[in-house]
Design a protein around this nucleic acid. Structure first.
Lengths: 166, 166
DNA sequence: AAAATATGTCAACATAGCTGACATAAATCC
DNA sequence: GGATTTATGTCAGCTATGTTGACATATTTT
């Protein structure tokens, strides 16, 4: 009665395994795959003093040129204050430019410059190469299987975001 | 000659597409899938005042009970100072306990407590459920296709880390 | 006994997120 | 046409998680 006053502090020496009803294999594969997938662009970004946040903004501005600040916030799911700092840097360095909305002049349409387009491609290339390598020995239908799985991992209400891309 | 003194600042109005030789479909699917995959545990962690860093530590301590601090640093690829702060919180809250290494008494073996095991399971369950749902209408071989793809996305030299898990 | 190793700790710093409050210009509503 | 709403920007302060560098302690190895 005198021991373990604040809860059971005994070490558990057995490992959690698939036997516990959890799909650890895929949980861990997703973790490791994403870690290395993002490491490629991270190295390039470091040369510019940029981070992953810059990458995401640059990516979507290149994929959806002319999108507004509000639309970008919706895709990234961050606050405008958080976006502002990073976006400002991309504008100051001439990777992105803002154009006043033609219909609604309150809006700021975001476009890449030639410089921003080049960087976006430089960042995407090693990621695309990694994917190509990973699929090199895959069977014909495998690519679509992977696509279907990843899409099914996305919240249903957010899947339209994916379909809206070119 | 007077305009555009500092580089071409013209907006590019065309979108980057698959036609540019980049696998945007899978790049974006990985981004969205991972974003939502991590959102499940993030909500639970917030109740404890924990973040993703706590989750990763707790996960691997539960999957490899008795691993040393050095081994954990190797898996997580962070500095010991960064680990220390978060690990200390998990120890102070009774989720993890340290045991002096039996052979080498400099080492600290890390074990989950019953409380830490419970939380690890609570965090893994929604992720596992999401994966199960995503595979619900998959064909028999599809799971292995996805596993093979994700593993192939990991840096070759780091794949042994995956094989070392139970 | 000396050197190397495993861990812990202190201090200072950077990035990228957050909340809350407030400002401005433009569009919309009545 | 005045009031309200909307899109964006900005200031200030806070948090989480990472970094580097320096140094301390205990223990093992040489």
């Amino acid at each position: 009665m005198t021991e373990r006053l604040q809860g059971n502090a005994n070490p558990i020496r057995t490992a959690l395994t698939e036997g516990d009803g959890i799909d650890f294999a895929l949980i861990e594969l997703l973790f490791f795959a994403y870690r290395d997938f993002t490491s490629d662009p991270d190295q390039i970004l470091a040369d510019y003093g940029f981070g992953r946040a810059h990458h995401r903004i640059l990516h979507f501005v290149n994929r959806m040129p002319g999108l507004t600040v509000a639309e970008l916030l919706d895709v990234l799911k961050i606050t405008k204050q958080s976006l502002a700092r990073v976006l400002k840097q991309l504008i100051d360095t001439g990777h992105i430019i803002q154009v006043q909305g033609p219909r609604d002049r309150r809006q700021r349409e975001l476009y890449p410059t030639a410089k921003g387009r080049t960087l976006a491609l430089d960042l995407a290339r090693p990621q695309s190469r990694r994917i190509r390598e990973a699929l090199r020995e895959a069977e014909p239908g495998d690519r679509q299987t992977v696509e279907r799985f990843l899409k099914a991992m996305v919240n249903p209400e957010l899947r339209p975001q994916i379909d809206n891309l070119p």
